[in-house]
Lab assay of single mutants.
Amino acid sequence: MEVRTIKVFTTVDNINLHTQVVDMSMTYGQQFGPTYLDGADVTKIKPHNSHEGKTFYVLPNDDTLRVEAFEYYHTTDPSFLGRYMSALNHTKKWKYPQVNGLTSIKWADNNCYLATALLTLQQIELKFNPPALQDAYYRARAGEAANFCALILAYCNKTVGELGDVRETMSYLFQHANLDSCKRVLNVVCKTCGQQQTTLKGVEAVMYMGTLSYEQFKKGVQIPCTCGKQATKYLVQQESPFVMMSAPPAQYELKHGTFTCASEYTGNYQCGHYKHITSKETLYCIDGALLTKSSEYKGPITDVFYKENSYTTTIK
């Protein structure tokens, strides 16, 4: 009895394709271990004539594949690729409408935090270190965002349907971005203890939790000093293409032309909904596939993004 075979390709990165001759009487799992086709788990399936010449994702289970996976995804987590594939199996079914010149995501599976993050990423200057993220990001900007969303979920250790947080998501993504040249110098002034300067680099240099107003941050924000008295913390120097200011959701007025974009969060910790506000020729609110415009805006804002380049204080 002759062994019926077909020729397929296996890959971990969709760049390096490895030619395989597979036995049609055995499952993919018996031949390769966990195997995925377009995100779908085909591990328990036997090869079919229609699979001839198709590319299958496999887990990096030998040295060659491990090197290829690390170079593309910059992670050695053995569960990463499987999590990416199972997320992709959902995100490829989502709709990605162009809204006001940006790629958004039609609401499904509690994905409003991903839509808000995706919209924000198209408006701030950011370059990702893992080629996987950078490639998928370019495709997302062009309207094909399924891979990018699935990668975000995998890097953030999230599953489809789980509630997510924009600030946490951005923080994970910033860790995989090139923020080497970003720098922030802060000064804390206390009447009792004097003053202390701190220099922050990388992710810490672009994120701040405690106030939404970048102007206020430049002037000074009140913080408790270690001595128990009130101290003032203010920005001395900022070198970065953008800054992200966050605070627990509270009524906040966004003035046209003073910011790049913002995240609105309605609801409580267990259950809520994100919308995205962007400042173009007027203010726009993007909620999944829905767009509304207004000249002014007041609502429960939790993150505001500002364009920056270089700032030095005039406070002496």
Rank of each mutant, 00 (worst) to 15 (best):
Y252V: 08
C112F: 05
K219F: 06
R139C: 12
Y214K: 05
C156W: 01
K218H: 06
V236H: 07
N147Q: 15
V21W: 15
H276V: 01
H48Y: 14
V22S: 04
E125R: 06
Q237T: 11
Q237M: 11
K54C: 14
K92Y: 05
E68A: 06
V188D: 06
W107N: 14
L59F: 13
V22N: 00
A247M: 06
S246N: 06
A154V: 03
G257Q: 05
P224H: 11
D287Q: 06
I15K: 15
V185D: 04
F70K: 12
K307C: 11
A247C: 10
I286N: 04
F32A: 02
H273S: 04
T19C: 15
K275Y: 02
D77A: 06
Y113T: 02
V206Q: 06
K233F: 05
E281R: 04
F305P: 02
N111M: 01
G143M: 03
D165F: 00
T292M: 13
I315L: 14
A177D: 01
I124D: 01
Y172I: 12
C149A: 06
A132L: 01
T278V: 14
A250N: 13
E168P: 05
L235V: 10
Y155G: 03
K93H: 08
Q251R: 08
T43P: 00
R66F: 08
S86L: 12
T75N: 08
S240P: 06
Q134G: 07
L291M: 10
Y208I: 08
G288S: 03
T312Y: 13
R184K: 07
E125S: 08
Y214P: 07
M245P: 09
T43D: 06
Y113A: 03
I152Y: 03
S294A: 15
Y274M: 04
K183Q: 08
T91R: 00
N61V: 10
T10Q: 08
Q237N: 12
L186F: 15
Y234C: 08
V8N: 01
Y57W: 15
Q195L: 12
N309K: 15
T11F: 06
W94K: 00
L65V: 08
T199W: 15
T198W: 11
T211K: 06
G299L: 06
P34L: 08
G202Y: 01
P248S: 07
F259E: 06
K275I: 03
M85S: 05
L200N: 09
V99W: 09
T302F: 05
Y155N: 01
L81P: 12
M244P: 07
C261S: 04
T27F: 08
N129T: 14
A262Y: 00
N49D: 09
Y138R: 14
T266R: 15
P47N: 00
Y252I: 11
S295M: 14
S246D: 08
V243I: 08
P78Y: 07
R83V: 01
N61D: 09
Q20G: 09
Y73F: 15
V203S: 09
Q270S: 15
L212I: 08
W94M: 01
R66H: 08
N268P: 15
Y284V: 12
T260I: 12
G194R: 03
N157K: 14
T260K: 05
D23C: 14
R4P: 12
T43L: 03
W107V: 09
R4W: 12
T226N: 12
E215I: 04
D303N: 12
T91C: 09
Q175V: 00
A145L: 05
A177Y: 01
P224Y: 12
D180H: 13
C227N: 03
V203C: 09
V203H: 10
G82Q: 13
K201L: 08
A40E: 13
Y269N: 14
A247Y: 02
I15R: 09
Y96H: 02
S25T: 12
K95T: 15
T192W: 10
N187L: 11
F217Q: 05
F80P: 00
V21S: 10
W107G: 15
Q30R: 15
A115E: 00
Q98V: 09
V206R: 04
D41K: 04
Y84R: 03
I301T: 01
E144Y: 11
K158Q: 05
K183M: 07
F148P: 02
L121G: 03
E2M: 10
T169M: 08
Y274F: 15
T314L: 11
H256L: 12
G161E: 04
M24R: 15
V21F: 12
I124T: 05
G161R: 01
Q230R: 10
F148I: 13
S181Y: 09
E52T: 13
R141P: 01
V203T: 10
G202S: 05
P34M: 15
A250R: 15
T266M: 05
V221S: 06
F217I: 13
E308W: 08
K233L: 11
F56E: 02
A154P: 02
A108E: 01
L133M: 05
L17F: 15
K218M: 07
V99Y: 07
L163T: 15
V58F: 04
E264A: 06
T76F: 09
T232S: 08
K44T: 13
Y297A: 03
E168Y: 01
T312C: 10
V221N: 04
E281M: 02
G267S: 10
T278E: 01
S213Q: 05
L163R: 14
T292E: 08
Y36G: 01
H176I: 04
L200Y: 09
N49L: 13
Y36P: 01
K183I: 09
A146L: 00
C285G: 10
F148N: 01
R184F: 13
E296Y: 15
L179V: 06
Q195T: 13
V304F: 04
R4G: 12
K280M: 13
Y306V: 06
S263K: 00
K93R: 13
C182N: 04
H48I: 12
H51K: 02
Q216S: 10
A145T: 02
C156N: 03
M170P: 01
K95G: 07
L114Y: 00
A69V: 11
G161D: 05
K92R: 11
